[in-house]
Design a protein around this nucleic acid. Structure first.
Lengths: 184, 184
DNA sequence: TCAATATGTCACACAAATGAGAAATTAGTC
DNA sequence: GACTAATTTCTCATTTGTGTGACATATTGA
């Protein structure tokens, strides 16, 4: 039953994503598991946070990596990147929150921070490339498109969770709005 | 100096928006004011939350109301609604969080809930109207466009806060991406 | 069935957050 | 300069969250 660890991490990401200071009991209840059990896997709150950070890096960043390595048309790569981010769900959002929050001391030597920086930078450069190729508009900055990308991912994840969109439509709608939203 | 109360509410909305379980000290520090002073204006945490809810309803919802009452072209109304929501900033986002969170018992008899429902419903009906008029696409559902609307507002607010977009460009970029994102 | 492993229960010490009283301090106002 | 209202400072009791130890109770697999 070693997948309890993973369940706890998933629950923690989900809970902390919309309430960073939530009590550990909230995480435990969500698994569901006793708080005592949670503490058997993670020494303290910070330990759990670190585990979350690692897990996110592994799953989310590697998923994005894979997309950009495929020999596809640029625009199709972007589409796949969006889908990959949506599949990561709350993880992708939490990745940004973690490294963008005030309390977080973002240092590039830290592995997780470096990975975050790399992922973000690649997406940014990729968009610049698309702009230069005339595939996406130059009416808005590449930085805005990056934020917009994250925003659409969040919207898609929340929409599915709240039930306002069917699972089958989720990615389709997201790509529709995103791709049109960045075209001249 | 009765505007201390308002300052506290504004700080609370901002803090609780990205950390609902944050300590009251965080709110007090942000004003800045002593925690003791905060407690003189609000009996307890829940009291403050209620005040936030009321404040949001007043400012945010009324701003939207005003837009829809103006005799403008439909698409221009939508544009103004987006700008109004962005101007409300974190308030608009928090409005959704409050009434969409798990812990919240959403009951229509409650005034704040009713106002939220009304605002949301009107936006939804407005979009349906735009779809029927052929102004916005029917490739995606009106419910999705509602979520997308909120998503773009959030993105715009965050982008400005994090400095990735200039204040002058914020609304322009947001409307560009939103309006294109919902056109066929 | 037995042993190993995982989880639950209960109890505890400690830290942090909450809420409030009383007196000192500051900022305006006349 | 004295008065007033708002705020700070300091203090304290209470509650809530955190982390751990000892032991009981499942669950699993040989």
């Amino acid at each position: 039953m070693q997948d309890t660890r993973q369940k706890i991490i998933d629950a923690a990401i989900s809970v902390f994503n919309d309430d960073p200071s939530a009590a550990l009991e909230r995480v435990a209840d969500k698994v569901p598991v006793t708080r005592r059990t949670l503490h058997r896997y993670f020494n303290d709150r910070n330990d759990l946070l670190t585990a979350c950070s690692h897990d996110i890096r592994k799953r989310c960043s590697e998923a994005m990596d894979q997309v950009f390595q495929q020999p596809l048309e640029l625009i199709v790569q972007l589409e796949q990147a969006l889908y990959a981010a949506i599949d990561c769900g709350a993880k992708y959002a939490f990745f940004h929150k973690l490294h963008g929050s005030e309390g977080h001391r973002h240092q590039h030597n830290n592995n997780d921070c470096a990975t975050y920086d790399a992922m973000h930078e690649r997406l940014l450069q990729f968009i610049v490339q698309l702009q230069d190729a005339g595939i996406v508009t130059k009416h808005v900055t590449a930085a805005w498109i990056c934020d917009f990308f994250t925003g659409v991912v969040n919207t898609a994840v929340k929409a599915l969770a709240s039930g306002t969109v069917a699972e089958q439509s989720q990615k389709q709608f997201a790509w529709f709005s995103f791709s049109n939203g960045i075209r001249g």
